[in-house]
């Protein structure tokens, strides 16, 4: 990472303010980790429940640094050819066809087989050079001159083999391509890995990263987030809906509402011109943040109680 960003990472409040401008509210813990990651040149491994803004964090860092974001979405079966590089087979084939005359010319008819091979060997592996290499996200990230933000999303979905393969990239910022050699990064990318904890990541991977756990936000932080994402919504309604959501998270349900769903709900309430929560309104819009039939039933049972509680909290 070049020193031109040093100013942006001078202090933790500076990062928090900068992120706020990019419409992302961070806790102090998050800002501290980003600060350290930048100064120590380490990747960040972000864990936490779904929908707390793990991916968004990487996007915000990219916006803040004014760098391109390169995203690698992990899934089961992801391998090197999808993540690192691939030979442009079609192009190789096409070129050999086009250059057929050239090759004929190069290799005389009188030459014996071994002579022809020797002649061909005088030319380097033209067909296995940069021109025929299709860089995939990881390689692309290493090649960027001005640096980049590399987001390796949901790394827990990938296989163990791929995780092991990542280690080289993460610790030395280099990759090895057998035909070409080892490629070092031009500028160290800022790497963010996210995980939903569907499986335990290996010790080796964790060791190479700084670890950040983003939990569900506390009420004040969540109100802040709503405020900045949905600026038109009234203060009292924000207070009510955040109180409501926070209470719902305490219930024993299959999938608790995430921040992004809170934001969606706030937008919907805004469109419906609601000023206050009332049970009917909540019941009609419940499906926006509760996604399972059983969950809806559980929340509906408590609905009246929760709504009145939320309204009372706002003093309305």
């Amino acid at each position: 990472m070049s020193s031109k960003h040093d100013e942006k990472f001078a202090s933790i409040p500076a990062i928090q303010d900068g992120f706020r401008e990019a419409c992302y509210i961070t806790s102090r813990q998050t800002a501290t980790t980003v600060f350290l990651a930048y100064h120590l040149g380490k990747p960040i491994l972000v864990e936490g429940p779904a929908g707390v803004g793990k991916t968004e964090l990487a996007k915000t860092i990219a916006t803040y640094l004014d760098l391109p974001l390169i995203r690698l979405q992990c899934y089961e079966g992801l391998d090197e050819s999808k993540a690192l590089y691939e030979w442009k087979y079609g192009k190789q084939l096409l070129y050999t066809q086009l250059l057929r005359d050239k090759l004929d010319h190069l290799v005389n008819k009188e030459d014996s087989f071994s002579q022809s091979i020797d002649k061909l060997h005088q030319y380097d592996d033209i067909f296995f050079s940069w021109h025929f290499l299709e860089p995939r996200p990881l390689l692309k990230a290493l090649q960027q001159k001005d640096g980049t933000v590399l987001l390796i999303d949901e790394v827990d979905k990938s296989d163990d083999e791929f995780e092991a393969f990542l280690l080289e990239v993460l610790s030395d910022y280099q990759v090895s391509i057998p035909e070409i050699g080892t490629i070092h990064s031009v500028t160290k990318p800022f790497v963010v890995l996210t995980s939903n904890n569907t499986r335990e990541l290996s010790e080796a991977l964790k060791r190479r990263c700084l670890h950040l756990y983003i939990p569900f936000p506390d009420p004040a932080l969540e109100r802040d987030i709503i405020h900045i994402r949905v600026p038109d919504i009234s203060k009292s309604l924000t207070l009510q809906l955040v109180t409501f959501i926070q209470e719902v998270r305490k219930l024993d349900i299959k999938k608790v509402p995430s921040i992004s769903e809170t934001i969606d709900w706030a937008r919907v309430l805004l469109i419906l011109h609601a000023d206050n929560l009332h049970p009917d309104l909540v019941r009609e819009t419940l499906h926006i943040f509760i996604k399972f039939e059983e969950d809806i039933r559980i929340v509906e049972e408590q609905l009246h109680h929760l709504t009145t509680q939320a309204v009372r909290a706002s003093g309305g």
């Binding site: 933790i12 102090r28 501290t32 980790t33 990651a37 491994l45 990263c209 700084l210």
Partner: peptide, 21 residues
């Protein structure tokens, strides 16, 4: 980088570097 001056900052920093789940 962060020093021992500010307790909160120290705690957050060490947490990021040492505790990984």
């Amino acid at each position: 980088l962060v020093g021992y001056d500010e307790r909160r900052l120290l705690k957050d920093s060490l947490a990021a570097a040492l505790a990984k789940s």
